[in-house]
Design a protein around this nucleic acid. Sequence first.
DNA 1: GATTCAAATATGTCTATACATAAACAAAAT
DNA 2: ATTTTGTTTATGTATAGACATATTTGAATC
Lengths: 228, 228
Amino acid sequence: MATGWQEIHDEALRRIQSRDWPPGALIPNEAALAREFGCARATVNRALQGLAKAGWLERRRRAGTRVTLSPQRRGQLAIPLIRHEIESKGQIFSHAIITRQTAEMPSPQRAALGLQGAPYAQHVQTLYLADARPFAFEDRWVNLAAAPDFATAPLDRISPNEWLVQNAPFAHGTLDYSAAPANTAGPHLNCQPDTPLMILERRTFGPDAPVTHVRLSYAPNFHLHLKI
Amino acid sequence: MATGWQEIHDEALRRIQSRDWPPGALIPNEAALAREFGCARATVNRALQGLAKAGWLERRRRAGTRVTLSPQRRGQLAIPLIRHEIESKGQIFSHAIITRQTAEMPSPQRAALGLQGAPYAQHVQTLYLADARPFAFEDRWVNLAAAPDFATAPLDRISPNEWLVQNAPFAHGTLDYSAAPANTAGPHLNCQPDTPLMILERRTFGPDAPVTHVRLSYAPNFHLHLKI
DNA sequence: GATTCAAATATGTCTATACATAAACAAAAT
DNA sequence: ATTTTGTTTATGTATAGACATATTTGAATC
């Protein structure tokens, strides 16, 4: 008899996907399932909670558990360091600092980060390469109030991205993918200014203050892959 | 005293993010934390398992639990039905079938779905609209062997996407976002053929057979948003 | 008829205990 | 020196029982 919560999880998922338990249907309650599988209610609970978190089930106290009507899939999008993304494909990672200077953060970035006043910031443009070929062009503003050490960080060996991941406390952030013409990133990525590129705009916040705003232009043919 | 597993989860996350528990560090074992928080070990376990699943901790039997060195963030990317995506912004959703015909599935789609031979399929082009303005253009091939009823499904009220979600059993699939020129989708989306667009290529598989291949061209200014 | 209140019920969670399992470590055998 | 074997330890998971909490349902009251 299958008693592991994983097995119950898998069997329940099979019933959902095969429509033994059709969308919208109320499934047997935990006690009944525990009896059926010959295990404790807590074990069923563990399995069903996982399915609920993954969006397959909707559970409400007293009302019971039902199969989600139109399951809104959630893709697990892994957001690796660019270095890992490149190295995982067996390519050699490198990066080159194009420009680096301290200045007042311009208005668009300030607005995106919700910063008041005219905070000091460092502006860094970096080219990331895979096997010495351009992979992505990064335009980054770092709020020096939130990460003062960044001003003097040695960015020749370790990339700005990785330095911040390792040295700045992280609380939350947003990602925003869109499509846009290469424009000024074109020359760095060996493509025309009108070439369509994937753009990633990223805002990162520490526990107390916004840390950095990044606009990343991926080289042509980049694609974002998810399994669901 | 905080005894809920959520509270322990949050406190542990705070310690990780504030670097009380720095990257790579071994954290106290479950028994010690249970003592500290005044709860049972199972409660600590519940909290830490969540953090491990979210990528903050790495746990190995006997070796203990340590903070992930360079936490690879996983964004939860919600993949809503287009209808929900539009309606959640308070806009009116509608769709229009542009073309619909049964034919042999062409080679690229066949390859993408891993289909042998020359399976019968239905080809549907659909325009999705938000407040009567083009939102996305869909080019879809449906494997009729996997979803025979689709051939006669009434697609005037319910969109192809939604019909399949509700009527075809689902097992797994892949998503692939990229940037490309609008090309032939341009006229439908009121933009030039060279306008950069976000493209979503989606493959969906049932329990037994591939179901559908979709190429979705989003109108300009579409962006994919994630919080982490 | 409308409102309030009290059961009944399904899930949410904690506890204490037990055993399983993987891995690190050390001791013993080859 | 190398391999094998056993011990220890931390996590993984199951269990029964208990209580908490949300919600439905229906009865009692206004």
